[in-house]
Design a protein around this nucleic acid. Structure first.
Length: 397
RNA sequence: GGACAGGUGGCCGAGCGGUUAAUGGUAACGGGCUGUAAACCCGUCGAGCGCAAGCUCUUCGUAGGUUCGAAUCCUACCCUGUCCA
């Protein structure tokens, strides 16, 4: 396969690359690189600290895909070594380091999900692991690396500075992180590195290190906005539990989108779709939201699935019907009282919680609200139990 | 190494010998309103037993101790921050 002959003209490339980005450092340098008319090496690194990719990650992945479509090569870096250190970026406390096993397990599933978005063609995608070089460094080399940066400069980083002022701990380990990430760029010979806005500092360290290590040209830095999570306030993150995972079931993705505020919906349109936000705002918000749900489900599954996710939603919540596929739970008894039943079905965590649910009118059997805590359920017949608005289960003996 | 300050429920943060399963905020959950929106309003929010009033167990960094009784006092240890070297 010929790689470099499909290069688009400069202004077209530049326009697409800048679309949605927060910052490009520097445009001049990028132009120079593009003018060399070769596939650029576009670095993107992830720490496989969790196995699942969520919508927030797809902002950058979408950008990478665009680079691929422009004929460039994505160097996808799995930070299997750095994941064991724990990057504090964007958070106010030290992250727990992971074990090697956790990391490699995560990396595997992570890649599977990345392939849903990126082109797997080896001419367009290279996957590398930073343990290959970082794992081999000796103390001498690490000290050498550390000598390239100063404490004062480290403390320039926003979150370090904040934590330092607040008196929250920063371990020396964490100072090493940006250096290692930067060293990755040296190893990879990155032309461009993409990252979230919170990564800006680390990405810039990469630029400096590349110069220090005598590279002809340093990487260009392209930062993308952080996607707000479902609460609309904090960034989307698994640890805040405000995320939509791309492997989640279609109806979950659709449902979560529907529960988002209108304001946030438009933000999602801006960062995750090609739609014109101004056009979208002309529609009824609910209609627009359903459409967004469809677009996203289609991206991670397919069109038919997207359509049925929407139909399902309309059935369950508008027409007040039951979902299509309810999990069936088998209980090995003829009868059971309602409290034990929903505990056994793992719909609630404790008896106290079960009682509360009933007291507050959140438990339904076969669409009938249960008010009696002692309600006895005949399990020889199949029943449908509902807890709250969205938990359903079929119960059988 | 020295001098201080601090470690409380998912998070923040009061309490500083009994009235404390522990004020308040926030998150979460249930209900109402709605477009399963958001905002807002009401309620719940360690666990087990009991129809209930209530009873019991576990929880305030860790381990001991004092006391009729401790998150609160003492001792040791661990962890964090500030200042000095």
């Amino acid at each position: 396969m010929v790689i470099s002959c499909h290069m688009q003209d400069l202004s077209t490339q530049l326009k697409l690359i800048k679309k949605g980005a927060v910052e490009l450092i520097s445009e001049d340098e990028l132009v120079k690189k593009l003018q060399e008319n070769r596939p650029l090496r576009v670095k993107f690194g992830v720490d496989p600290t969790t196995a699942d990719i969520h919508l927030g990650h797809t902002v950058a992945l979408t950008k990478l895909r665009q680079f691929q479509e422009l004929g460039h090569k994505v160097v996808f870096l799995i930070g299997d070594f750095t994941a064991q250190i724990g990057d504090p970026s964007g958070r106010s406390e030290t992250r727990k380091p992971l074990t090697a096993e956790e990391v490699s397990r995560n990396a595997e599933t992570y890649l599977q999900q990345v392939f849903k978005i990126l082109d797997k063609d080896p001419a367009r995608l290279e996957v590398v692991y930073n343990s290959h070089w970082l794992g081999k460094m000796g103390v001498k080399e690490i000290i050498g690396l550390a000598s390239h940066y100063t404490v004062a400069r480290m403390l320039e980083r926003d979150d370090f500075q904040k934590r330092y002022k607040e008196g929250t701990p920063i371990s020396i380990l964490e100072f090493l992180y940006p250096l290692m990430q930067g060293f990755d760029s040296v190893q990879i010979d990155a032309d461009v590195e993409i990252g979230g806005n919170d990564q800006k500092f680390n990405l810039l360290v990469g630029r400096e290190l590349m110069r220090d290590y005598g590279k002809k040209s340093a990487q260009v830095v392209l930062t993308m906005p952080l996607l707000e999570g479902l609460d609309g306030v904090r960034k989307m993150s698994k640890s805040y539990n405000n995320y939509i995972g791309i492997t989640e079931p279609p109806k979950e993705i659709f449902g979560k989108i529907m529960s988002v505020s209108d304001e946030l919906m438009y933000r999602y349109y801006e960062l995750l779709t090609n739609e014109e936000v101004a056009e979208i705002k002309k529609q009824h918000p609910m209609e627009a939201k359903k459409k967004l749900g469809e677009i996203l489900v289609e991206r991670f599954y397919d069109e038919a699935t997207a359509k049925s996710a929407r139909a399902e939603f309309e059935n369950v919540f508008k027409a007040n019907q039951l979902p299509q596929d309810i999990e069936t739970i088998y209980i090995g008894k003829d009868t059971s009282n309602i409290i034990d039943l929903i505990i056994e079905a793992k719909l609630v965590e404790s008896k106290r919680e079960a009682k509360r649910m009933i007291e507050q009118g959140g438990v339904k059997i076969d669409s009938e609200k249960v008010t009696d805590e002692k309600f006895l359920v005949d399990l020889n017949k199949e029943h449908i139990i509902q807890i709250g608005k969205r938990k359903f289960a079929k119960i059988k003996k």
